[in-house]
Design a protein around this nucleic acid. Structure first.
Lengths: 349, 349
DNA sequence: TAGAGCCTGGACAACGTTGTCAGATGCGGG
DNA sequence: CCCGCATCTGACAACGTTGTCCAGGCTCTA
């Protein structure tokens, strides 16, 4: 019963539930408004005795500075926005955490949202963040046209695109070497004797997917292997369709002996499919996955450093805000081939 | 070179890089300030012709409403804070995403931060969020004393604790049935003939860890098995120490035949240890892990529904804000035993 | 003891928006 | 033709904070 009462006290109706303001603190401490402000912000020019009185009033009233008003006055929000595809995807966890750490080191908070790979939702999120006047944005773009950001950039919102480049505008970009990584991964399979190699990846409208596909084609071409259409499955995303695509490749009268998978989710599904087959099919996946080393065989992957992507992007963001970074640039981080067994299986025809 | 110029335009010095305000829009459209406000907010009482002129000016200037000022005026920020332990932990990804989805459905943005299991950092984060006047807080507590939140609760900040209960204050709590889940998991091992069962878990000061330990003890007691100290390892967290703890249990002259692990990270490490042993040791872990079904043997786990935790918590939060939820309550979500093989191995003495 | 200089404290405006209220305009009816 | 009413528009204050600037009191020195 006392609970109900207490909760009822805080119902809507009064702004912020009637929090005390600096004015209230000043009145209680018997000092001027600005003096309270000075104490709260640790500015000099307040005698210890006055400071004590003010501090006492603050504690007694449970005063907490209203940063909304502060932001309005100062023009900096000390917060940055992060727009990514899906917070729940294990690839974005470390990236997100890395951005957060850098933000924290600069005294900024992180606001984030998932675009769910929907360009409209991405725009909606980005603009909402701009309306809050975040100091900067780290964006993993879903769409490929970011001209809607022009006014924001001009207005001084620091912006860095990660994982995929910006579309139609000139902005900082931090990406992995998707092309090179995929090429190396496929070349690795070729080096182990494979010639009929399947590729299962996301829609080529997604930049990373297109680059990885390009890497696949380049490796095949370098080896003088003509690619057959039946070996490629593009744009499949959901597990069921990935499963079907893989099964079809393997059921072909002249089946693939190896598969290169375009991202972590596809890799996981294909692992499941292969687990149901007795014939050994080689596999190299883009993106590392947890426990990949404990499977039989271990899963060979092209790993990218998600944390480094996030860290690099966030650091560039704050350098933009410092003013120590002038020209937009494109940074490409290397990938790393991790051999664990699945990519070293010989062809079994 | 043009880039440098463009970026230089947006250097600090002028607030928000001199964004246009409603006043500017009003001047350009030749209307009053309030009329612009009406158009921006879709309020009625504006002739189509006037609206067109205003809209034109908005587009021409690239105006975007300043939500900081709006918040200051209206008293609601339409944002909620989420404080968790580590964004990069795969357990929190789905939880975080679920909270975000609910927030989105209510038109709110999500600000989040990682406490890194440090009570001080948790408090710092929570208070920073309160200073921003978030409408509500979802907290996965690191500390066990939350009296510092008293003034905030009184001021009307909706608050829900998830995964672990609040300390020293009366607040909404959403948790998994850690005790029951652990008891069932251990009972499962006992049912398969094990009597010497090890437990490796986190520090008992963490509520979930303590509850799971209690579940372990209860199951053993129910079966009339006295627990030996050598079977329990508490407070180990980092992989190296977990590894040592597991090795010691297995090296004992009278070793354990099964291990119950207290969370996903411990489970993963122990899987690695067991992979190096030939003797079959049974394993049941708390928390599900990806690919657990593909290992040999598959890993039996007590799974909790992280997304449901987040969703439930966020929904309660918004019901607090609605005013449809009056008394703080404690909600316990069930866990689910997923048998995959490792927990069904017979004792091998 | 008077004057200069320093230190502390406070009054006031401004940040960009929204709520209130009153003024202006246009229209129809008496 | 004038009044009343409805509709549209704009002036103004307020939200809670910080930056500017000035007043008053003190100390120190000549």
């Amino acid at each position: 019963m006392p609970d109900v009462t207490r909760r009822a006290d805080r119902l809507p109706g009064n702004r912020y539930g009637n929090r005390p303001t600096m004015k209230d603190v000043a009145a209680r401490a018997g000092v001027g408004l600005k003096t309270v402000s000075r104490v709260v912000n640790g500015e000099p020019g307040v005698t210890p005795e006055t400071e004590r009185r003010v501090q006492e009033a603050i504690d007694a009233l449970g005063f907490r500075r209203n940063d909304s008003a502060r932001v309005l006055r100062k023009g900096r929000t000390a917060s940055i926005g992060l727009v990514l595809e899906d917070l729940a995807d294990p690839f974005y966890g470390p990236l997100s955490r890395a951005v957060e750490e850098v933000a924290r080191a600069h005294g900024a908070l992180l606001i984030n949202g998932s675009s769910a790979e929907d360009p409209e939702r991405e725009q909606e999120l980005v603009l909402a963040l701009c309306a809050r006047r975040v100091d900067g944005l780290v964006v993993i773009p879903a769409g490929d046209d970011h001209r809607y950001l022009e006014p924001e950039l001009k207005a001084g919102v620091a912006t860095v695109f990660v994982d995929r480049p910006a579309g139609q505008i000139d902005a900082d970009v931090v990406v992995s070497d998707n092309f090179g990584g995929a090429r190396d991964g496929v070349a690795h399979l070729i080096a182990h004797g494979h010639r009929r190699i399947g590729f299962i990846g996301d829609m080529p409208r997604i930049h990373t997917a297109a680059e990885r596909l390009r890497g696949y084609r380049a490796a095949m071409e370098d080896a003088g292997i003509p690619v057959e259409d039946a070996w490629m499955s593009l744009g499949v995303t959901d597990p069921e369709r990935v499963r079907r695509a893989a099964e079809e490749m393997l059921a072909d009268p002249h089946p693939v002996t190896a598969i290169f998978t375009g991202n972590n989710r596809v890799t996981v599904t294909v692992i499941r499919v292969l687990a149901g087959h007795t014939r050994g099919v080689a596999l190299v996946g883009f993106d590392d996955i947890e426990l990949a080393d404990l499977l039989q065989p271990g899963v060979t992957v092209v790993a990218q450093d998600a944390a480094a992507l996030g860290r690099t992007a966030a650091e560039r963001l704050f350098r933009q805000l410092d003013g120590t970074l002038l020209a937009p640039d494109r940074i490409e981080l290397p990938t790393r081939l991790v051999t664990r067994g699945s990519g070293e299986l010989p062809p079994s025809d």
